[in-house]
């Protein structure tokens, strides 16, 4: 398996990610999905915005990569994809990038159902800039700009994007590698807008401010929070609490809920 993805990694690149960063896992999971689909990576284009997640494809992936402006990855990708529809185009960026500064581009690309696969790497903070609150930060969480705990409600990104008209919408955690890889494969194979939210915790900026002192503790904390969709069915709001529901939320436009 490892051999499969190794050839998709750009030679000589030293990863900039912190030891224990979940994005290191995601680098390999995205490539594994591509390897399993046996796609010639030279036919792919990876577009990213600004932030840690944007560095997943650029420079790690040995393919065409477009590392763009903060929030604009989807708009750049739209131009490239429309002009050359042969390019299998994937956007990889963070929650702050895609949902705050880039939120308008996200919902409009979903509305147009542009044939892009968007991987939203959700670490629930602005990691690279020092751990500020993001539109995906859960309530009560401490960040460098919510010193008394976050008082704003986060977006349910999957609901938002599904409502805007995306063809395929799913959420998984890096701790659920097998369904996540199949989901990325489905996203790539879907002709239309695919959105996969990946819970990819940051133990440096998120974990340590919230008494999760190590990468392992942070991962474990999120593993305990993630519930598969069918497990969540029938649970009361109290029972659900702050659980993160994972699974597919839209697979084909008609099923959008």
């Amino acid at each position: 398996m490892a051999g499969d993805v190794e050839e998709y990694l750009r030679p000589g690149v030293k990863t900039p990610f912190c030891p224990g960063c979940a994005d290191r896992i995601l680098v390999r999971l995205i490539l594994r999905a591509i390897a399993e689909l046996k796609i010639d990576i030279d036919k792919m284009l990876f577009v990213s915005g600004i932030g840690c997640a944007a560095w997943i494809p650029s420079p790690h992936f040995n393919a065409d990569t477009l590392h763009t402006l903060h929030g604009r990855a989807i708009a750049f990708a739209t131009g490239a994809k429309l002009f050359n529809p042969e390019l299998i185009t994937m956007v990889v960026s963070g929650d702050g990038d895609l949902a705050a500064i880039g939120g308008n581009h996200l919902i409009h690309a979903a509305r147009r159902n542009t044939d892009l696969t968007v991987i939203c790497v959700n670490n629930m903070v602005y990691g690279m800039t020092g751990g500020q609150v993001s539109p995906a930060t859960p309530m009560g969480i401490f960040t460098s700009t919510t010193v008394e705990g976050n008082r704003e409600r986060p977006f349910d990104l999957c609901k938002l994007v599904a409502a805007a008209g995306a063809e395929y919408v799913a959420r998984y955690s890096v701790g659920q590698p097998s369904p996540l890889v199949s989901s990325i494969k489905k996203g790539i194979e879907t002709s239309g807008f695919s959105f996969i939210e990946v819970i990819s915790p940051c133990h440096i900026q998120f974990g340590r401010r919230n008494r999760l002192d190590t990468a392992a503790e942070t991962l474990k904390f999120f593993a305990g929070k993630c519930l598969m969709k069918d497990e969540a069915e029938g649970l009361s709001p109290e029972e659900l609490g702050d659980k993160i529901i994972t699974g597919e939320f839209s697979n084909g436009r008609d099923q959008a809920d």
Partner: peptide
């Protein structure tokens, strides 16, 4: 394509240029 704002318009133009346009 008519984009959602001017930021997106120009971003898409740059993306298209790198796609060969």
């Amino acid at each position: 394509i008519q984009m959602e704002d001017e930021i997106a318009s120009l971003s898409s133009v740059i993306g298209a240029s790198w796609a060969g346009a």
